[in-house]
Design a binder for these strands. Structure first.
Length: 280
DNA sequence: AAGGTAACCTGACTGC
DNA sequence: TGCAGTCAGGTTACCT
């Protein structure tokens, strides 16, 4: 589920409803996520006012006066907002945070994560800037940073012998390109997923940078809907119809040239591409 | 030091 | 219907 667009939309939703309100209670039902949920989380959060909710890569950053709640959704995590003091729990609801005193009155945020690949960690301000946290320090540039573009992408890929698909996915050059969007961006840029990352020239890097930004931007505009599941047109006169052009379409005709879409495996992950439109 | 691979987990789906 | 096997949108840790 969660690639960058969904994380971005989640951050905006949380910030809109919860910023300015205060943590009234925290209940941790299951600590065993990717790493154990920080011990004593309730004590650290209790009574603190949520300042903002942002994002770095696919990490959510809940900023409080004393520190930052770092949260990653892994493969199957999600946050839901429930009005008031919502009773009952669904399977895989691992964490609940009750907020009060904000614009929306009492609101509860619940973290659900069937596969438990996600993370919920507290970073105290006393430990320094959260962006220097080991999980964040080596992340690539944000795709919507004005500095990101062909030249920076090319500089980042220089010298890499890995296939460009895997270089994108690694997130060391630019963050936010998940498995679906990697295939989609390469299709949009007409670059073969097995092309050597370091071999891409100025022009193809410029196309790829633009494709990455374009695809992610579209998905955010469409409300963070993930390409794969998105099958219906939304109400706005079909303005934001986002669908996968190659991902999950093995054997189906390419929308650009009609050739059969191929599926290969790179680093144990599926990649889809058009063998005719995309060149090494 | 870049690059490959195993590992973390549950659930949905496929084919016998 | 049941059961085994495969695959899933992410990332780190570890080995070469």
């Amino acid at each position: 589920m969660p690639e960058l667009p969904e994380v971005e939309v989640t951050a905006r939703g949380l910030e809109q409803s919860l910023a300015g309100s205060e943590v009234a209670a925290v209940r941790v039902h299951e600590r065993r996520l990717r790493w154990p949920v920080t011990a004593g989380l309730a004590k650290r959060l209790q009574g603190q006012r949520l300042l903002s909710v942002g994002r770095r890569g696919k990490y959510l950053l809940w900023r409080f006066p004393d520190g930052v709640l770092l949260c990653h959704l892994g493969m199957s995590g999600s946050w839901r907002l429930l009005p008031g003091v919502a009773p009952g729990r669904e399977p895989h609801d691992h964490l609940e945070i009750d907020f009060s005193g904000g614009a929306g009155g009492r609101v509860q945020a619940r973290y659900n994560d069937p596969r438990r690949f996600g993370a919920v960690l507290w970073h105290a301000n006393a430990r320094g800037d959260v962006l220097a946290h080991p999980l964040l320090a080596s992340l690539g540039i944000e795709p919507f940073d004005p500095a990101f573009g062909g030249p920076l992408l090319r500089a980042g890929l220089r010298g890499l012998r890995a296939p460009v698909k895997q270089a994108l996915l690694a997130g060391k050059v630019v963050v936010g390109v998940g498995n679906i969007y990697a295939s989609e961006a390469l299709f949009a840029a007409r670059i073969h997923p097995q092309a050597r990352a370091g071999a891409l020239g100025d022009e193809r890097c410029a196309r790829l940078a633009q494709a990455v930004r374009g695809i992610l931007g579209q998905a955010i505009a469409a409300g963070g809907s993930t390409l794969r599941d998105f099958s219906h047109v939304d109400g706005l006169a079909g303005e934001y119809t986002v669908r996968a052009l190659v991902y999950g379409r093995e054997g189906e005709p390419c929308h650009r040239c009609g050739a059969a879409i191929r599926r290969i495996v790179q680093g144990a992950r599926a990649t889809y591409y058009c063998p005719s439109c995309q060149r090494k």
